[in-house]
């Protein structure tokens, strides 16, 4: 890690300093405004939200970085993961831990297959027409949303009880919380590290990073880049589906889940910088914590959550104005 910071360009160092300052500012302002316990609760909620956003946004960022496709169907992957996981979790009659595992498996596998079919069948013929890819994923998002509504009905699904393993509670910041929240945060961190290791420590990761820089060159070196494209697309879809199923025991499943997370993920990718993994990770924290703090603040002062919904969009607009390539993205003109 110290080596990492020593090798950074001045611009990256400035970005890290900015991020640290901003996060400190968030913590400080919530401490001043809400007082100790409430501030702790808010930040904890923000942390959990950050992890969920990260799962969705990392896929979006990887796919955009490597394939140059802005995947507007990413939100729909969350939705499909959540609903398929929900159905499996509810219908499999094992002990709740095992049926949760089955639900995770079902969600991940089905979303992964969906991603594979979409990439190989629909997106691959369109690499020559990039604008149409955006339109296509947009349309796919609409189809998936409608199919989910058609199959599972428009009513929101109530959250299911978390698996027995995570059913206990713990006491933090003057509030007893379900261990399941710790599980979400832990899972997010594990995946953050695992994907980071995949990108930085394996041969496949080297190919992916090289592909982000220049996919044609990688192809010219005799590597089947198309296969790597498919892998990354599936990986992104699987991470989004995972976010969906993990949400089910916490807040249930609703139809607007997809769009909600799509917007959040887009904001994260813009703030962090397109195609930059570290940027996505850092920006998820920024967005999650900002949203939680803004929500708490607007509830306290205005008695309505309007500030929370617009705060991160304003954050994105400011970043686009000041540094359009994002905190850690490559400079482009």
């Amino acid at each position: 890690m110290p080596g990492y910071f020593a090798r950074l360009t001045p611009r990256y160092r400035r970005s890290w300093a900015l991020v640290a300052a901003y996060l400190a500012f968030l913590v400080l302002i919530s401490l001043i405004d809400f007082g100790g316990n409430t501030a702790g609760q808010t930040l904890f909620r923000g942390l959990m939200l950050s992890m969920l956003i990260f799962l969705v946004a990392s896929g979006l960022s990887l796919i955009f970085g490597l394939l140059d496709v802005l995947n507007f169907a990413q939100g729909a992957f969350v939705l499909v993961g959540a609903y398929i996981g929900y159905a499996t979790y509810q219908s499999v009659e094992l002990s709740s831990t095992y049926s949760f595992l089955a639900a995770v498996g079902a969600a991940v596998v089905s979303v992964g297959l969906l991603g594979a079919v979409i990439e190989t069948g629909l997106i691959r013929p369109l690499y020559a027409r990039p604008v149409f890819q955006i339109v296509l994923t947009f349309g796919l998002g609409a189809i998936l949303l409608d199919l989910v509504q058609r199959i599972y009905g428009p009513q929101p699904k109530q959250p299911l009880a978390p698996p027995e393993l995570f059913r206990g509670t713990f006491y933090l910041f003057g509030q007893s919380l379900s261990i399941y929240r710790l599980f979400i945060i832990g899972l997010g961190l594990v995946i953050m590290v695992a994907v980071g290791l995949l990108l930085n420590r394996t041969r496949l990761g080297i190919i992916i990073r090289a592909g982000v820089q220049d996919a044609e060159m990688v192809q010219a070196l005799g590597i089947n880049v198309r296969r790597v494209f498919t892998f990354v697309f599936v990986l992104g879809a699987v991470l989004a589906g995972l976010a969906g199923i993990v949400l089910v025991p916490y807040q249930g499943a609703t139809l607007d889940l997809g769009n909600q997370f799509l917007i959040l993920a887009i904001v994260v990718v813009v703030i962090g910088g397109m195609g930059s993994y570290e940027g996505t990770a850092v920006a998820s924290f920024i967005v999650g914590l900002t949203r939680a703090v803004a929500e708490q603040m607007s509830l306290k002062h205005f008695d309505a959550p309007v500030l929370a919904e617009t705060s991160i969009l304003f954050l994105m607009i400011v970043v686009l104005l000041v540094q359009p390539s994002g905190l850690f993205g490559r400079e482009e003109s």
Partner: peptide, 25 residues
């Protein structure tokens, strides 16, 4: 900038106005 940024910026801007228009506040 590249077209993608434009698409996302316009999406966010429209979303801000939509959220404001339907917010109870």
């Amino acid at each position: 900038l590249r077209g993608v940024y434009f698409a996302m910026f316009t999406l966010a801007l429209a979303e801000v106005f939509w959220v404001l228009a339907k917010s109870g506040t």
